[in-house]
């Protein structure tokens, strides 16, 4: 079985571990990820100005190209997923804009491409994963951090309940680890404000990590490379700003899955984690 795959820029640069571990996971369950040929950036962040059609061109062209290959495309990066899905929704609602844009492009798009997140794929193919789990992560207490982009706006993304989502937790259970709920899992990490207002990003990420820890989480899992950066890379500064803060390892969901599926360590990209994951993984006998 083959799945069409759109990695997005960051998975080839700063988020390589997400890319390699995801490949390892799909490899282990016998699915080939067929990368979309000649893809480019989705534009990151969906434009919120209703009169800005330029920003729709990049997502539209990606969707059109993907559609030439297959009816659905797997998008692991939360930002790309959100941008493509919102653009798709908008173009379906506003056929007039779609027609205008189509007129100016080489490609032509009809609005029917399905944008799929790996977590949705695993939700719909739970047995596939469950049967391939080799290592028990039973004692790993995982806090599933959704962030904003997988959940909102609900009407357009239709991923899960935006206030009390469970898809991530179910995923974590199916690979044998223990999901721990924490109420700030649906709040914002600070996103791109890390560029302009690093303090804002630092404080919001700190707040939600503390909330996770307070509920007994000993590893945080996410699917977004930007959330990942804010939660992982900013911890050093958090320790400076809040001396009582204890660092906590952050993983991509695919790293956790790859661990459970017994993938080779070199594919996990754990060495790129800023907060060392090795202590906890050794403690639970996972490496």
């Amino acid at each position: 079985m083959k799945l069409q795959y759109y990695p997005g820029c960051t998975l080839y640069t700063k988020a390589k571990p997400l890319n390699t571990s995801l490949h390892a996971c799909f490899n282990a369950v016998g699915i080939e990820l067929a990368e979309l040929p000649h893809w480019y950036c989705c534009g990151t962040t969906f434009t919120l100005a209703r009169d800005n059609r330029m920003s729709l061109i990049a997502p539209l062209r990606i969707l059109a190209k993907a559609q030439q290959e297959d009816g659905k495309v797997l998008v692991p990066c939360s930002i790309c997923y959100n941008t493509l899905k919102r653009a798709n929704y908008m173009l379906n609602e506003d056929r007039e804009t779609l027609d205008i844009l189509n007129e100016h492009l080489e490609e032509s798009y009809d609005g029917n491409e399905i944008v799929l997140h790996p977590l949705e794929f695993f939700r719909d193919n739970e047995e596939l994963v469950r049967s391939k789990v080799k290592k028990s992560l039973k004692d790993l207490k995982v806090g599933c951090y959704y962030g904003c982009l997988l959940l909102r706006p609900q009407q357009e993304i239709q991923f899960d309940d935006p206030e009390a989502p469970t898809i991530f937790e179910n995923f974590i259970s199916s690979v044998g680890a223990t999901p721990i709920d924490f109420p700030l899992k649906v709040e914002c990490c600070g996103s791109y404000l890390v560029v302009t207002s690093p303090d804002a990003a630092l404080e919001s990420s700190y707040k939600l990590l503390r909330n996770a820890q307070g509920n007994g989480v000993n590893a945080v899992v996410t699917s977004c490379p930007l959330c990942y950066y804010n939660l992982d890379a900013l911890q050093e500064k958090m320790t400076k700003a809040h001396p009582d803060f204890k660092q906590i390892p952050v993983f991509y969901f695919s790293q956790i899955l790859a661990l459970a599926l017994g993938a080779e360590e070199k594919n996990l990209g754990l060495e790129q984690n800023k907060v060392s994951p090795y202590t906890i993984l050794k403690e639970y006998d996972l490496l």
């Binding site: 109420p183 700030l184 503390r210 909330n211 307070g214 509920n215």
Partner: peptide, 8 residues
């Protein structure tokens, strides 16, 4: 906007 539990 929200009511939640943090450290009890």
């Amino acid at each position: 906007s929200k009511v939640y539990q943090d450290n009890g």
